[in-house]
Design a protein around this nucleic acid. Structure first.
Lengths: 199, 199
DNA sequence: CGTTCGATGTATCGGACCGATACATCGGCC
DNA sequence: GGCCGATGTATCGGTCCGATACATCGAACG
């Protein structure tokens, strides 16, 4: 999970840990996702050990000297850069849409955040898997509400109602997204792209 | 967290692990909370070590022989019972509304599920703390959406919008609950109670 | 000029919790 | 008679969190 998220962010540009964490909590944090250093740094070391990222600025020193706030030299301040193997690994993890992708909020959120770089069939698979999962939770709560309405105190009841409402909302949201995917109405990244390209 | 949940359920009636897990995922599961045996059994042992629960049916064998499906003897099938110290501990954990109560979905959900047994001032404190937390997340996402609307691809954008919507909804829900608490319109458990009690 | 303070930054440790797995019993169904 | 799914107890490795420590830097204040 974290591996995918980190590789995805480093794929856009090299970064040091602090910045990485900020991006993780803002860009991917929407779907309940906050990462602590206690998992960030170990994961970075794991990625390094696997050869998917390297410590220090890339050898070629790419054009973006301004992007990395140019203090790389002083002290501490380790900049991580994704490797070619890392980019492969990223694509591999992107298409691997196992149950952990649907089950956890965080897992789905991370995958979804990288949809722009995910191929359409995988996108559809993930959205449908997620919908199935949420529908199951929804059914569970409906059962509780209908069967046990008198056996629960009103707070527990209210909690179930709120949860049910949230589930129904999410299913509707997913349905909309799925419909868009099928129509090819998929919104594209704001790069220069022919709007009336037919195929 | 888990300790509180388990004590709360055992407070209602003795139970064995399997049943405990089922209750945990249904009654408290609404707010995204699912427990695995990998955490359930260790926690039970911890509670036992602390003297808050005991293994085996209570000495006095209370009236509810039917509630525990009477197969207690055969083999395996360990029934856990809360002790007097456990009930104290439960009340203690109930009123302890630290940051972990507001931060995590699960934490808040568990506390909320036991509101019927929480004193009113603590209820209010928890609801307001939670609201504050969700408002912060909401503001963060609003910032992202307004400041970076052009720098994010449309999927990330959609994720933010969905998250923002969910936050706004939750804040409204909490606001309603808070208002109810202040009015004393607190819904009571379905015991016989005067419906037109004015104060 | 010093110093205090908050933002930036790297890092570790103990513990909570998850997911997979193993295994045993029981009732019902073919 | 044998198989299967629900019930039931339990452990192990691994992921991730929360708290904590510590170091640097620029700005603000006296």
């Amino acid at each position: 999970m974290l591996e995918l998220a980190i590789l995805g962010l480093l794929h856009e540009s090299p970064m040091h840990g602090y910045e990485l964490r900020k991006q993780l909590t803002t860009k991917l944090g929407a779907f309940r996702f906050a990462i602590s250093y206690g998992s960030l740094y170990p994961t970075l070391r794991r990625l390094q050990a696997g050869g998917w990222i390297t410590e220090g600025a890339p050898a070629g020193m790419p054009a973006s000297t301004e992007e990395v706030p140019l203090l790389t030299g002083k002290r501490g301040r380790v900049v991580y850069t994704i490797t070619a193997e890392g980019k492969e690994r990223f694509q591999e993890l992107l298409s691997a849409a196992g149950p952990e992708t649907y089950d956890s909020e965080a897992g789905f959120g991370v995958h979804f955040a990288f949809f722009a770089r995910t191929d359409p069939s995988t996108r559809l698979r993930i959205l449908e898997g997620r919908r199935r999962r949420v529908e199951e939770r929804r059914e569970g709560m409906r059962d509780v509400l209908s069967r046990a309405a008198e056996r629960l105190d009103s707070y527990t009841l209210e909690l179930q109602r709120h949860g049910l409402d949230a589930c129904e909302r999410e299913v509707r949201w997913l349905e909309e997204l799925i419909a868009n995917e099928r129509n090819g109405t998929t919104p594209q990244p704001p790069s220069a792209q022919d709007p009336e390209r037919p195929s």
